[in-house]
Amino acid sequence: MKKIISVLVISAMLLTAVILEQVFVQNTLDTLLAKIDTFDAEIQKVSDINSQTLLNLGKDLDEYWTEKEKILCLSINHNDLNKVGEQIKKIVVYVDQNNKDDCIYELEILKFYAKSYKHVMEITPQNLL
């Protein structure tokens, strides 16, 4: 009886943990994509990207990712997380340097990474098989 209860408790904990993790990761990546879209929309409006608005958006993106990365590293490969972090850092630097072309380029790559990881973390037949 003790064993059955232990197994049931462990199963319940495991199920709760995986569901919470799935929800957290999806929400984080959705928010990240939303922030990237906002950034993209803003950057398209101006020719001079070294503006306070974009600097703030870049800083917000950076802080958001740094905060979420601490938890995401529990379930996502650290190399993959580093790639996203690296892209964000590049974007912040390019905004600072007023380098619009490279900034847009890195933004597209960042969008690609975020969408890829979102797709990989989804429960789809492609991922299961």
Binding site: K3, V7, I10, L14, C73
Partner: peptide, 19 residues
Amino acid sequence: NIPIVHGIVPLVTISIIHF
């Protein structure tokens, strides 16, 4: 680089199935 849960979760899942 691989999170430890990538090993633990399948291990525990398989043990539950075995049980």
